[in-house]
Design a protein around this nucleic acid. Structure first.
Lengths: 131, 131
DNA sequence: GTAATTGCAAATAATTTGCTGGGTG
DNA sequence: CACCCAGCAAATTATTTGCAATTAC
């Protein structure tokens, strides 16, 4: 389950760069298709292995809100996600963290380590186009 | 993808009752093992089909926060979940919904339909036992 | 009676893993 | 040049689905 990794391979570097350069929150397969343009014979297993490693290193986040497929987020900072129910895109947003914690801490049935919030609705683009 | 159902079968009723009578947030397989005690030849496929139907009817919620396996919650009301990182249990909790929405609405990049929050930490039981 | 729903088993889909050769440090 | 990590393909896991038989209404 836990993977240790010490070397920087070109595959790992490319996966990191790919995640860092996109604002979408891609699936493993999207990343695979993307990095394949540069390293044609990279394997999907390698993509999964490196995503796992990067997650353990705290460099990326794995998102799996209510989907059968995980998405990956190149931004490891605590932030929140807005999922568009029309186009399926996942957008980042921030909100007042202190206020959020002051809501959560008194209510939580235990000591709090971290938290995740996702909001579902219709994004600005879809609102303009379809509604 | 979408399933319509009109009849109340003993299988469906038992699955509803099982979910209503537990405070844990069981997996499909846990539910299957549980209902099998009463209907020995029920199939896992039927459990999945009925969970899907109950979800569409708004009678239960599916939870799949960061896990490879979905859990089901017999309480369809908006509420929040606390996941214990020690024992893995999932506890319900509530918090001031108006305050939560007043945090989210100004920050969200679109029109908000619903939201989900899970908090990770150590539950009271584990705090007493292990920490 | 008849159409919805079940049980069964095979199909899917995403992800993980064992093995061996290749490339990094 | 040692051993970590990639590629490949097969394995695993959760879930879904097609079909004939059963059952609720």
């Amino acid at each position: 389950m836990e993977i240790k990794q010490k070397r920087m391979t070109k595959q790992k570097k490319l996966i990191m760069d790919t995640l860092a350069s996109t604002t979408c929150h891609p699936t493993a397969d999207w990343i695979y298709q993307s990095v394949r343009k540069n390293i044609a014979d990279i394997s999907l297993g390698t993509v999964y292995r490196n995503l796992q490693v990067l997650k353990e290193e705290g460099k990326i986040q794995e998102l799996n809100y209510g989907k059968n497929q995980s998405r990956y987020d190149g931004n490891p900072q605590l932030h929140y996600h807005f999922v568009c129910e029309s186009c399926g895109c996942v957008l980042d947003f921030n909100l007042d963290n202190k206020a959020m914690l002051s809501l959560i801490l008194p209510a939580a049935p235990g000591s709090v380590h971290t938290h995740r919030l996702e909001v579902y609705g219709i994004c600005q683009d879809c609102l303009k186009k379809h509604f």
